[in-house]
Amino acid sequence: MSKKRRNHSPEFKSKVALAAIKGDKTLIELSQQYGINSNLIVKWKRQLIEQSSEVFASSKGLAPDRESEIQSLQAKIGQLTMENDFLSKTLGR
C-alpha cells in the first residue's frame, strides 16, 4: 500500500520553519506537533534562512523581477480592456 504525498501550503511551511528558528521546541516536538518528518522541518528552515534576503531586496518588499512582471501584467490588462471596449462597440452592445 502506497502513501499519498501531502502538499503543504507556503503559510504552513513558513509557520513551521519560524517555529524551528525560534528554538522553543525541539525538532522532535515540532514534528509530532505538526505531524511531519523532522527532515522536512530542517529543509524548510534552511530555505527560509537562505531566501529571507529576497524579502528585503527592494524598498517595496518585492524582488526586481517581480516588479517587471507586475508592470507587464498591468500593460496586458490595459491592452485587453481596450480590445474589449473596441469589440463591444463594434458588435453594438
Rank of each mutant, 00 (worst) to 15 (best):
R66G: 01
N84I: 03
R93D: 13
G92S: 14
P10L: 11
T26C: 04
S52A: 14
A19N: 06
Q79N: 10
F12V: 07
I77E: 07
K15P: 00
L91K: 09
A17D: 01
D65I: 06
D85R: 11
A57T: 11
I36V: 15
K13F: 01
Q51P: 00
R6I: 12
G78M: 11
Q32F: 00
I70S: 04
L73K: 15
L40W: 03
K15F: 00
F86L: 13
L80S: 07
S68Q: 10
K45F: 02
K13G: 01
V42W: 02
L87R: 08
A20T: 02
D24R: 07
I28A: 08
H8M: 08
F86N: 10
L80C: 06
D24L: 08
I77F: 07
K60S: 15
I49R: 03
I21A: 12
H8R: 14
A17P: 02
M82I: 10
T81D: 14
N39Q: 11
S58N: 10
I41H: 01
Q47F: 07
W44S: 05
K43Y: 15
R46F: 00
K76I: 11
G61P: 04
I28Y: 05
V16Y: 00
L87N: 05
I36T: 04
G35W: 02
E11T: 07
P10R: 08
S52P: 01
Q71K: 12
D24M: 05
N37C: 05
K45G: 01
N84G: 03
A75H: 13
D24P: 02
I70M: 13
R93T: 12
S59N: 05
S88K: 14
E83R: 10
F56H: 07
A63P: 01
A17W: 00
V55I: 15
L73G: 06
K4L: 15
S9P: 05
E83D: 15
E11F: 06
P10I: 07
